[in-house]
Simulated scan of single mutants.
Amino acid sequence: MGRRVKSLPLPGWRPILTAFTIWFLHFMVCWAAAEIWPHQWTANAVAWAATVIALLAVGAHLKRVRARHAAGQLPGWHYRFAQGAMAIATAAVLFGALPSLVFLP
Rank of each mutant, 00 (worst) to 15 (best):
L74P: 02
R3D: 12
A54K: 06
M86Y: 00
A47E: 03
M28N: 11
R64F: 07
V65A: 12
R14E: 10
L56F: 15
P38A: 04
A67S: 15
T51Q: 13
A91L: 15
A92D: 05
G76C: 11
R14H: 09
F24P: 01
V102K: 02
Q40P: 08
V65T: 14
R64V: 11
A32K: 03
P15W: 01
M1Y: 10
A19G: 01
I53W: 10
H26W: 04
M1F: 11
I53R: 13
E35C: 11
I16D: 02
A32G: 01
A71S: 09
L55P: 06
V29Y: 02
L101G: 06
Q83I: 07
M86A: 13
A87G: 10
V5C: 06
T18G: 05
T42I: 14
K63W: 14
F20D: 00
M1Q: 12
A45K: 11
F103G: 04
P11I: 00
I22H: 01
V29Q: 08
V102H: 05
A70F: 06
F27R: 04
R4E: 13
M86W: 05
K6Y: 13
F95Y: 09
G59R: 09
L98G: 07
Q40W: 07
I22M: 00
A32L: 06
A87D: 05
W41D: 10
K6W: 13
F24Q: 13
K63E: 13
Y79D: 05
I53T: 15
A89P: 05
Q73I: 03
L104D: 09
F81V: 05
L56M: 13
A57W: 10
G2W: 12
V93M: 00
M86Q: 14
A70I: 11
L56A: 15
G12L: 01
A85C: 02
T51M: 15
A71Q: 12
R3Q: 12
P9W: 01
A67R: 15
W23A: 11
A85R: 03
A34F: 05
A34H: 08
A43D: 00
G76A: 13
I22V: 12
W37K: 04
W77C: 08
G96L: 05
I22Q: 00
F81L: 15
T90N: 06
L94C: 08
L104F: 10
A89E: 03
P75Q: 05
W23F: 09
W48N: 09
A19S: 04
R66E: 11
L104R: 11
F27S: 03
G2I: 12
A49V: 15
A89Q: 04
W41I: 12
W77F: 12
S100K: 06
P38F: 00
V29D: 04
R4H: 15
R4Q: 14
H69C: 10
L101Y: 08
G96E: 00
F20E: 02
